[in-house]
């Protein structure tokens, strides 16, 4: 089986950005993939409609960690509207491609991140 991770993917796996827990996040999500069993948890801090901080935890493969790392790095500082539009295709392209059986890792990272935004937005509505 070919499992050629790009140098960039390996670097993100070995030195993930924004990894760890966050206290009192404005948005939180947990997502898992039934097939491979992997899991991601996202934490968000939002200020003035922008992603002020984002962190994640991972139980997953190298590309699970790498895709979440790259994603969090890219969306930091974006407005909520921009961040919601960030696509898994962009994650894959930014990493210099992923092995075909690993594309779903990037999809899960983006879905998990959007879920955390949805959680933030839900909380906003309730507090209003």
């Amino acid at each position: 089986m070919a499992l050629n991770y790009s140098k960039k993917t390996i670097n993100h796996f070995l030195n993930p950005k924004n990894i760890g827990e966050m206290k009192n996040p404005d948005g939180y999500s947990q997502i898992g993939n039934m097939l491979c069993g992997d899991q991601l948890n996202f934490f968000l801090k939002v200020r003035n409609g922008k992603i002020k901080d984002v962190k994640f935890l991972s139980f997953g493969c190298a590309s699970n960690i790498a895709t979440a790392s790259l994603l969090t790095e890219k969306v930091k500082g974006m407005t909520i509207a921009e961040a919601k539009k960030y696509k898994w295709e962009t994650v894959v392209a930014e990493l210099g491609g992923l092995p075909s059986q690993k594309i779903h890792c990037s999809v899960m990272a983006v879905e998990g991140f959007r879920k955390a935004i949805a959680d933030y937005e839900k909380k906003q509505k309730h507090s209003r």
């Binding site: 390996i10 070995l14 992997d38 997953g60």
Partner: peptide, 14 residues
Amino acid sequence: TSIEGEAILMDLSH
């Protein structure tokens, strides 16, 4: 427990 095999393998492989 609590960590994934492929990640362990890749880390060791590195």
